[in-house]
Nucleic acid binder design. Structure first.
Lengths: 128, 128
DNA sequence: GGCCAGTAGTGTGTCTGATATAGTACCAGA
DNA sequence: TCTGGTACTATATCAGACACACTACTGGCC
């Protein structure tokens, strides 16, 4: 029954830091971006994203691991266990060629999204 | 059982025009933006959005009318029936002061969102 | 007189992504 | 031994967007 999710409206009322849903749909792309240069393990990706924004934005762990599973299922990343024999097992993720293709497409989509929203928000209501 | 929604991944595979979820969370803001200058009725808002993007993006009617109800419930817009006595009744929407406040906040959020995603997508994986 | 496309709004059900919440398990340092 | 950080998993819930289907009026065309 309790509702804790921060919406844009809630944010306006309560000065919440950020409405998380605004990044919705971009999480996959962000993960692929982080994996472009080299393989990383899950928790590392979590930290990279958190730190890259100066702690301003954080993708929740649950969200991230769900994203990994989705990306893996779709063949955009491949997962393998690291050889940390002593404790703290780590699952590494590697971006596939398909993943890189999707990433390129997603960047184009992101650019289009920016253009569309910017256009709509700047609508002054031309006095036709 | 059938699944027709276009995702970013599908788009990459099928050259779909656009992954609709990328605008998710911004619909309310877009509607408020369109209402800033003057009142408009539902179908008109639908067309303004569709046309403002050159038909590139379309917010579905069902989505839009759901948005109106949500905005009205939250007191961000007020609705009233037009006086078209002959046929084609139209419900007009007017943005409230609260709506304007939320809009200003949403624009700030949008700017922050752009910055965050741009930062993350440009991650080159610094060779630390 | 009938048909169709366009306008205008509503209702129901479903899917997806993000989250809350909780849990397991290991390790290092005080 | 206890605590905090690391690392990953599982379940349930929610909101937003959509598909689909529907009502209803108008004007133009045949």
């Amino acid at each position: 029954m309790t509702k804790d999710k921060t919406t844009a409206r809630d944010a306006a009322k309560t000065s919440e830091p950020f409405a998380s849903d605004l990044l919705r749909g971009h999480t996959d792309t962000i993960v692929l971006a982080v994996l472009r240069s080299h393989d990383r393990y899950g928790y590392e990706i979590y930290k990279v994203i958190r730190d890259a924004t100066g702690g301003e934005h954080e993708i929740k762990e649950a969200t991230l691991y769900a994203t990994f599973r989705r990306l893996e299922k779709d063949g955009l990343v491949e997962a393998y266990w690291g050889d940390e024999t002593q404790g703290g097992r780590r699952k590494y993720y590697r971006i596939t060629d398909a993943g890189r293709a999707v990433f390129r497409r997603a960047v184009a989509d992101w650019t289009a999204t920016q253009r569309i929203i910017d256009t709509l928000l700047n609508l002054k209501g031309n006095p036709s």
